[in-house]
Design a binder for these strands. Sequence first.
DNA 1: TGGTATACCCACTAAAAAGTAAGTATCAAT
DNA 2: ATTGATACTTACTTTTTAGTGGGTATACCA
Lengths: 107, 107
Amino acid sequence: MEVIGGKWKSIILCHLRLKPMRTSELERAIPQISQKMLVQQLRELEAANIVDRHVYQEVPPRVDYRLTEYGHSLSGVLHDLCVWGEENIDLRREQGEEITLLHRDDL
Amino acid sequence: MEVIGGKWKSIILCHLRLKPMRTSELERAIPQISQKMLVQQLRELEAANIVDRHVYQEVPPRVDYRLTEYGHSLSGVLHDLCVWGEENIDLRREQGEEITLLHRDDL
DNA sequence: TGGTATACCCACTAAAAAGTAAGTATCAAT
DNA sequence: ATTGATACTTACTTTTTAGTGGGTATACCA
């Protein structure tokens, strides 16, 4: 939980699980996140060796982030959690709860 | 993540996954948690319909907590997360990191 | 020279989560 | 009347996490 906890990490990871993504792509994919939080969470995931920051030697600058091999070892858990979460949301929606979150449409 | 996030919920759930437990048992099983946090987290898990608070009509009072059926649907994910976490800890210990947490010995 | 594009970084503030220490309620047994 | 056991509450403080609004650096291109 220390590694994937917090408001944003699991969401970021769910995106990166599918393909490497650039900063700006992630920003678009997760519109609610601020630049600061995005960078900060990516740094922490990098420090935990879950994602790899890949810099292209180009101008204008280009960077993308991808799961490391170790990060991929989380993929299954993440997927299951995601599936559970979506069922969870469905259940709660059926019970009339209003849920407007970062799920489903983003993932 | 809203349901199982935070510092304590996943730990509590990992215990309850195995068997119903009383307040005092949980306190002993998770020595670092304060009474306040334990009760507070249990209340939140109850509100999310993940755990069920079972009161015995006895004196002195007796209460235990157990996963609801819905809570059990998390059991698999929780287990996988736990396994990943332990591998994670092993890896980091091999690399000389000092980790003193609530894991392994408690679970 | 100024504009564009990308990927940041920094200082500050606000909000949420967690921690601490003490108190409450019940009722039986002594 | 006091103690003991259990399961909480409450008030308060500290720490952590998240959000806001700005700024920086590089280098091409007109």
